[in-house]
Design a protein around this nucleic acid. Structure first.
Lengths: 192, 192
DNA sequence: GTCTATAGCGCGATAGAC
DNA sequence: GTCTATCGCGCTATAGAC
């Protein structure tokens, strides 16, 4: 078990800070304190803040969709797959202290302050989630396990919006327990 | 039609700015430019930024729940009431330019950077929404119009989270049209 | 009630030694 | 690759004239 390199430590710290207080409330000074290096050293690894954000979003997106694709391609039932997908959000919510929201959810709120690259990364993350959710819902309908009314595309949007919003809402009030209850309700609705 | 007083202009401008870029990306200088007065004059009306935020949240909360209560107490059917409630969010989304999110949704993301007063105001807003939604859903079940599975409390959380998240997600991609489609899907699900 | 002027701080970023 | 030192800017906030 070798120690993480500095670049990784910076990314980890930046991500945690953004998930807690947001991009615009997070500074190089904050990262500096947490990692134990000077601000100038962070600029060596990430010349600008925009630069850091782009790298962070790339890393998280790769990580997240790798997990999502494993779920999609698994031999489990659609219901289990949907549960596992929702668990990805719960994991974010319950890792470390309870104050964290979803990385892309936070940046969705701060969307209009991002540069065009990051703006497009957020947009792509939302689209890619919904595209994969459509596949998952379609699988469930084919097996007869899912019996909700309406179109799969609309239902995918309902689910994704609920998860993103639910993280923010339950962070303020109720925490993980409430989030889980909401997910259970969703599963029931999807099963019809 | 008398002109709005300065205090109101400041609140209106601050609200629009927060809904677009967030609290932490909005400055007294921005308000100053938009209203056409100097920064010092804003401090006369609102000594500190925290002060301004508290006043803004109070005003919006009063406004919003006055409308919500009118809907709840109206003689309409539960389905119409739910639609009208969702319309409150759509109105926010489609007023002025298309770049605006929900005021309390934005501050939910920036929750950890708020002072304790504003933090509690956000928490109360979320709770009060869900409490009233529970009443609305209960009414619908009693008339037989709503036929969703599970508990009304869980369903209220699903709906509120979806609306808050949906505003952020569709602001990035799809806009009002997508938001409306999502709401339609919700109505279908609630009716069972 | 609005103004000019400014204090005091934190920010992102850079130069250059080691 | 990390450091010290510093620049220039924008921020919230205040003092005091009008």
């Amino acid at each position: 078990m070798t120690a993480k390199d500095t670049r990784t430590q910076i990314l980890d710290t930046a991500q945690e800070l953004i998930q807690r207080v947001g991009l615009n409330a997070m500074s190089y000074a904050d990262i500096s304190t947490a990692v134990g290096i000077r601000k100038a050293s962070i600029h060596y690894h990430f010349p600008s803040k925009d630069n850091l954000v782009v790298a962070l979003l790339d890393r998280f997106s790769s990580y997240f969709f790798r997990l999502f694709d494993v779920i999609l391609d698994s031999p489990e039932s659609p219901e289990i797959k949907l549960r596992r997908y929702c668990d990805l959000f719960i994991a974010t919510l319950s890792s470390g202290n309870q104050d964290k929201a979803c990385l892309y959810g936070m940046l969705g709120a701060e969307l209009k302050t991002l540069n065009s690259s990051s703006n497009e990364q957020v947009l792509k993350f939302y689209r890619d989630n919904q595209t994969r959710l459509v596949q998952l819902l379609q699988q469930g309908r084919e097996t007869g396990e899912f019996k909700f009314p309406g179109q799969v595309e609309s239902m995918a949007m309902v689910i994704f919006s609920m998860l993103e919003g639910g993280i923010l809402v339950t962070r303020a009030d109720g925490g993980v327990a409430q989030f889980r209850e909401m997910v259970e309700q969703l599963i029931q609705v999807v099963k019809g």
